[in-house]
């Protein structure tokens, strides 16, 4: 192109300025804030130290919260992969009409507020909720099963929130595969299950892996679902940060917790990418 070097930078200038002002600056300020100190009478003090990090890392209460958060994210990711992968494959094999209906059903919820969807789960899971009522009416139980304010309930609702991302990722990978590979395997005598396991699954793997990464990082930082279904009783990192900021008003401590969350999520993403690159080098592009 007959253009000067400045052109791409001029074109991106508005976005770049916005991001420097509205993203980079706030994140740097938050990092600085996490080194400040706080007392209940004087508020935030512009000191510079590691006390907040020491507080978080030295307290088993926070370990429990971080452990619970990552465990919930991990289990959610596993379930999404186990259910989402076959579902994406079935989607691919549906008749066009059913496929468009199913795409609306699968992807539509993605566009509906998480608050609304979690409200639905709260109505389903409560002690006097739909599921417990139904089980009682069928005389299968006599005391309600506790599902609200449990990690299990949170996982269930999170799977509902996150599984469209997994299906999208696997779906995108499956669309890149040459449909003739399945026919080739079949012509060589493979049964449907074998075709899925030996031909489809390996080709879907890049999608499963990238989908897992998305689901994991979104689950680890999810807020609305654990806040509504877990309340004060089942705390995760993001609800803890919320409480520190808007109830306790200890912003520096909240900032330190948030920065630890950010760093661990980024570290897990980088490690995961490294692992995937090493394991699958050469197979995919």
């Amino acid at each position: 192109m007959n253009q000067d070097r400045a052109r791409p930078w001029l074109l991106s200038a508005p976005a770049l300025v916005l991001f420097l002002v509205m993203l980079v600056t706030p994140l740097v300020m938050t990092a600085v804030l996490s080194f400040n100190s706080f007392d209940f009478y004087g508020g935030i003090k512009p000191t510079f130290g590691l006390e907040n990090y020491a507080d978080v890392l030295g307290d088993s209460y926070f370990y429990e919260i971080f452990g619970r958060t990552f465990l919930i994210a991990l289990v959610t990711t596993l379930i999404c992969a186990l259910v989402g992968t076959p579902q994406a494959y079935f989607l691919l094999r549906m008749r066009p009409l059913w496929r468009s209906v199913m795409i609306l059903v699968v992807l539509g919820p993605l566009l509906i507020s998480v608050v609304v969807r979690t409200l639905g789960w709260a109505i389903l899971l409560g002690n006097n909720g739909v599921i417990n009522d139904a089980l009682k009416n069928l005389a299968l139980i006599d005391r309600p099963i506790k599902m609200m304010y449990t990690s299990g309930g949170i996982v269930l609702a999170l799977v509902h929130v996150m599984i469209p991302f997994m299906i999208l990722a696997v779906w995108a990978a499956l669309q890149r595969q040459d449909p003739a590979t399945e026919k080739a395997a079949e012509s060589l005598g493979a049964r449907p299950a074998t075709v899925f396991r030996r031909i489809v699954l390996p080709q879907a793997m890049p999608g499963i892996l990238s989908g897992s990464l998305i689901v994991f990082s979104l689950s680890a930082s999810a807020f609305a679902t654990p806040a509504i279904l877990g309340g004060r009783r089942v705390k995760v990192v993001s609800t803890t940060v919320y409480d520190e900021f808007l109830n306790t008003l200890n912003w520096p401590l909240g900032a330190a917790i948030a920065i630890i969350l950010l760093v661990s999520v980024l570290a897990i993403m980088v490690a995961w990418n490294r692992l995937v690159e090493k394991r699958f080098a050469g197979v995919f592009e």
């Binding site: 509205m22 706030p26 994140l27 938050t30 804030l33 930082s221 900032a255 969350l261 999520v265």
Partner: peptide, 11 residues
């Protein structure tokens, strides 16, 4: 993580 963005914008 969105919660990090939230507090960063708040600050």
């Amino acid at each position: 993580p969105t919660v990090v963005l939230g507090i960063a914008f708040l600050r």
